[in-house]
């Protein structure tokens, strides 16, 4: 980690095209930082964590503020503000509704009005809500860089706290959520100390209901060192019918798979207990929704 120090950028750039952004990112490397909503960057700056940043690159003029639906699925531009996501009628359809739930529960309203989808994803702070939902819905990221465009699964995007797989000169321009089959239900739950705090842990779940059996199970959790998918639990639930015993087993085996980081707010053990309860509830909600309720 670089040394702490005052944040003293010398230039605030407002590029008008994607190529320009790539060029700037390549030219300045670590000295440049992208400003989306600016909220996470401000907190880092105030804590003295980014003294090396000299160029701020604002993406506001790139026309990346859209939520649309086409035959591939739902596409969300990285500069969409959280409140726009929370108000978007496209996300009212069932499997995608958990995105809306997560967006609506990001508090306070001032942050919803400033923070962006791209910022939530790329700041790689493991407590944020949207990455958890996106992971649970199998989202893909469209990344632009010096070598052109690449599309990656969001699973595997995060390496560690503040660390993503974005290379030099690359940035995320779009989140794509594939079309989910009928009878898919999703849910998002989180636990925070106060209404306006970052959550201690959050859980996103989606599953498809095939005549009572679970298919395409996705379980994502935030609150560890990164956002993670818990694949062993997904496999354990695949093809099973819901009953109390299965749920208990799944929830109990979470202890081996998920390690929340302890903080001044709560210990690892406490967060893990909360995660188990949230996971159980989220699975039940998703299952209920998959039946079409």
């Amino acid at each position: 980690m670089p040394e702490l120090g005052y944040f003293a950028p010398d230039e605030y750039l407002k590029p008008n095209s994607i190529e320009e952004v790539v060029n700037l990112l390549q030219r300045y490397g670590d000295k440049a930082r992208i400003v989306a909503g600016g909220t996470a960057l401000y907190e880092l700056a105030k804590r003295g964590m980014i003294p090396q940043v000299k160029k701020m690159i604002d993406l506001e003029y790139l026309n990346l503020r859209y939520v649309r639906s086409d035959e591939e699925g739902i596409k969300i531009g990285c500069m969409v503000k959280i409140y726009e996501l929370a108000n978007s009628p496209i996300l009212d359809i069932h499997p995608y509704y958990s995105i809306k739930e997560a967006a609506l529960n990001i508090r306070p309203v001032q942050i919803r009005n400033m923070a962006t989808v791209g910022g939530e994803i790329c700041s790689a702070i493991p407590f944020l809500d949207l990455p958890t939902v996106f992971l649970a819905l199998d989202a893909k990221l469209r990344i632009i860089g010096p070598k052109g465009e690449r599309k990656i699964d969001m699973d595997g995007f995060y390496f560690d706290y503040f660390l993503t797989s974005l290379g030099n000169g690359e940035f995320v321009i779009e989140v794509m959520i594939p079309k989910l089959p009928d009878k898919t239900g999703s849910a998002f739950l989180k636990f925070e100390r106060t209404a306006v705090d970052l959550p201690l842990v959050n859980v996103g779940v989606s599953l498809m209901n095939k005549n009572g059996e679970c298919k395409n199970v996705r379980i994502a959790l935030g609150g560890g060192r990164t956002h993670v998918r818990i694949k062993s639990l997904e496999r354990a639930l695949e093809g099973k019918r819901f009953n109390d015993k299965i749920l208990d087993d799944i929830v109990q085996s979470l202890s081996d798979e998920f390690k929340p980081i302890s903080s001044a707010h709560a210990s690892t053990e406490y967060k893990l207990e909360i995660a188990k309860i949230l996971l159980r509830d989220a699975l039940l909600i998703a299952y209920k929704r998959s039946q079409g309720d």
Partner: peptide, 27 residues
């Protein structure tokens, strides 16, 4: 608070309430 938590600096930008402390002036 200077950290986007207390709301004393709230202003309205284009019809939306935002924290002016977390808004970069250039933005």
């Amino acid at each position: 608070c200077d950290f986007g938590g207390c709301g004393a600096c709230t202003v309205i930008i284009d019809d939306n309430a935002v924290y002016s402390c977390m808004t970069w002036a250039y933005k």
